[in-house]
Amino acid sequence: MLAKRIIPCLDVKDGRTVKGVNFVDLRDAGDPVELAWQYSRQGADELIFLDITATHERRKTTVELVKAVARQVNIPFTIGGGINELADADILLHSGADKISINSAAVRNPALINELADAFGIQFVVVAVDTRNVGGKNFVHLNGGRLKTDIETEDWIKEAENRGAGEILLTSMDHDGTKNGFDCAFLKKINDNLSIPLIASGGAGNRQHFVDVFQQSNVDAALAASVFHYGEILIPDLKAELRRHGIEVR
């Protein structure tokens, strides 16, 4: 049986983690490599780095980050942010990234998914989708959830899968930051119609929320940021809790 995955997400800007990180035993809480290494030691199954660098130097700093992580960390990791064309992805692959995540760029140019999948294999291509419920329907949102599109989330995910996405990272904007739990019902609906892995994101506040999302929606992985960064949930405790509920984890 494949183990359910627990994935901490790190926001990175100009090569440093942003948002507070409050971790014991860290010499430098802003160093994404050190944080990544700590998470791998704690039993994280995978890591996602979201690079929100906006400067012209972005590509260079991102490549340096990816190389540094690949040198130090012995678990797989995904890098997202600012990947708009094949060349962006190519340089990240050759710097040691296991997967790349694309979001707005894929919505604006869906053929990018096909191009990436053909060039690097579907296992390399994570399509991240930000969704928000508007009038009873879920719509794809861009720019970190601020810009609504007219694309229904279910339709877009199906299209992304057909075009060659290897995995979907679905963030429920209505739940993100609330710490009230994942959007299990919608995640289940999506997951039941998907034949590639689904990562749940948005709403994790306590260990029970992870139990719920795996039991109720059967997603393949669950992602969270602040609850891990602030030490509110420790990964070994979380995994012990999941195991107690009969959920297979590493």
Binding site: A3, G166, I196
Partner: peptide, 11 residues
């Protein structure tokens, strides 16, 4: 019947 690719940690 499982999802393909087989992606993740397995025994």
């Amino acid at each position: 019947a499982e999802k393909v690719p087989h992606m993740g940690w397995n025994k």
